[in-house]
Design a protein around this nucleic acid. Structure first.
Lengths: 155, 155
DNA sequence: TATCGGCCCATGCTATCCCATTGAGTACAT
DNA sequence: ATGTACTCAATGGGATAGCATGGGCCGATA
């Protein structure tokens, strides 16, 4: 399996390091990522982490915006500005920078969440709250579908 | 037979392991699954367990959505993040993680329920209660039908 | 010189391997 | 029908390997 799946919570040690889950590391290796890019997710307090393809994805997203409007510029600044990238040490750990802590609220523990082609880093408590919201939205979607709305509709 | 059918209740040992029913294991083998994937069911305290095809089905569904809208993101979060791998050991057992226990309420025993292309894991008492609810709903539906209401209605 | 990042090793926990035991079901012979 | 031997599944437990974690050391940098 070469996709980022399932989730795990690991502790940050006194030096500010945290182990990337072994399964994620093997995916990273299998996909041939030399290093990892961590980007601030646009509307949630999480980091999106992945290989170079992650940047492409974000750029596609930004390209949807009108280049004359400020939004596109803001997004570009947000995504590329600082664009921290993460080095795995020999034990498969990364250092959690202030950049990451500020955006996510991470302090002593990191929740790693597989998202298929990339993974996310969350503050565990915030992840839990967000997960509950997601389930609620999906349930509502399902109820709408069963009331005769077309199943493939996103709105 | 290559479908998951019938049900069984097995005990969790002191190490947190539980045997997957032999019949289910033979289905897993027949379908050529290397490992199993367990997903938290949306509106019930059960795990949906299946092979990679279960994941493929969900991913195909996600592909129908606009990748930059919230619905696609929610679905991916649910499918990729809200699940976990289950590795069968050499004796056909899996370890019941806290991740599973939290969602299902499982403590010392697991009820395995065949659902055709996948199977479910329940806390036995909750399964019993849920089964009663299902029967009640079906009974009500039938009564309504005999009173002239349309039988296929979901309300 | 003080700090930080990277390298290496130690430790403890848990998942996994491997083997033993138990018990239920089945076939077969008397 | 009944007893016996066989098979296979579930369960228990010792041994081990992999992984998360903690901490020491060193070299680069400011």
């Amino acid at each position: 399996m070469d996709r980022f799946l399932s989730s795990a919570i690991n502790k940050i040690d006194t030096k500010g390091r945290v182990s990337v889950p072994a399964h994620f590391r093997s995916v990273v290796q299998k996909r041939g990522f030399a290093d990892l890019y961590a980007l601030r997710a646009l509307d949630i307090p999480a980091m999106d982490v992945g290989g170079p393809d992650l940047l492409d994805r974000y750029e596609q997203r930004i390209a949807l915006e009108d280049p004359f409007l400020q939004t596109a510029d803001d997004m570009s600044f947000f995504v590329h500005g600082d664009g921290s990238f993460l080095k795995l040490d020999q034990d498969g750990r990364i250092t959690v920078s202030d950049f990451i802590r500020e955006h996510t609220g991470i302090t002593s523990e990191v929740a790693f969440v597989g998202r298929g082609l990339f993974f996310q880093m969350w503050e565990p408590e915030r992840l839990r709250a967000y997960g509950a919201q997601v389930r609620e939205r999906l349930l509502k979607l399902r109820q709408q579908a069963s009331q005769g709305r077309p199943a493939a509709s996103s709105e």
